[in-house]
Each structure stands twice: as C-alpha cells, then as structure tokens.
Amino acid sequence: MYNLLQRANSIFAFAMTVTFGVLAAIAIATPFLPSSPSAQITVKDIQVISYEYMTQGESEFAFVKLNLDADLTSLFNWNTKQLFVSVLAEYETNSHDINQVILWDSIIQSKEEALIKVSELHNEYNFVDITTSFRQVNASYSLYWDVMPYVGVLTSGQTKSNHVIKFPPRSNEYR
C-alpha cells in the first residue's frame, strides 16, 4: 500500500501544490504593493529634415533632443525582475487619430539604475510618420514603463505630465 513509488508521488504532489500556492499568492499580492514613480521630460530641440525612406520616397525625419529626469526606484519590490523604460511621442494627424512612437528605450535591472538622469538624449529609432510629413502638428512626450515580475502579472504606467511641443517646419540640413 505504502510503497516507495506512492510515497514519492505524494511528496512530489504536495511539493507542487505548495510551490504553486506560494507563486499564486505572490502573483496576486504584488500589484497591491504601493509605488510612487515620477518622471520629467523636457524637449530641448526638434528638427525636421527630409530624406529618402524605404519605398515611400522623400519623408520627414524628426530629430529630437530631450532631457530625462526620472525616479522609478519605488517600482522595485521583491517581485520585480526588470523595468522596460521608454520615451514615447504621441500625436494626432488628419488621417490617423493615434500615433505612438518609441524614441528611446532602456532595460533597468536594479534599483540603483532606476534613478535616471540623462541630458541631451537623442532618439535612437527613426522618428518618421506613416505618411511622408508631420504637418507641424502638436506632439506630446512622456515616459512609459512596464514592470516585469519574476512571476505574475505585467503592469505598466506612463507619466501624466506630458511635454507638448509642435513639430517645426522642414529644414534643409541638421544644425
């Protein structure tokens, strides 16, 4: 009745139940941990210059220079594996009501790195509209982050105070 196989089986089953119980408790509890992330983005300079781009021909490229000052240390708790932090540009055009472009991103794996202070940050990805021109609309710049847990639910957030600034008219060369 109580041979080795059955004992091993019940020990294994019990260990599994306990492990997954603890993991579930951690996953459920983590989103309730308080945090107070803050970030400030100031756009220093934008220039719009047109170049050949893929198959769509002459297209406007925006070159953004900004200062970033963020304190995301409070997002690090015992179930935080990493933060994905990115600078987001959002704007509305006549043909597209939501345009969102990530200009710069970074993966943060420790609480020490979560205090971010960068000045004169350039966009690391091409900032090109889906049409060929930005048409000098207003764009807002904010910081977006998502929190990757060791186990459980992925959460994300975005700064509320956005920096809004117009795309300048096209210039011929980078100043």
């Binding site: 994905f84 990115s86 043909s95 597209h96 009501d97 939501i98 345009n99 969102q100 472009v101 990530i102 991103d105 990805y125 509209d129 889906i130």
Partner: peptide, 10 residues
Amino acid sequence: HRVIKLHDEK
C-alpha cells in the same frame, strides 16, 4: 515581441 510604433487610422 514588443510594439514600438503604432498608427491608428481614422
């Protein structure tokens, strides 16, 4: 993969 660019047409 992660979404890095998005345009919502009207």
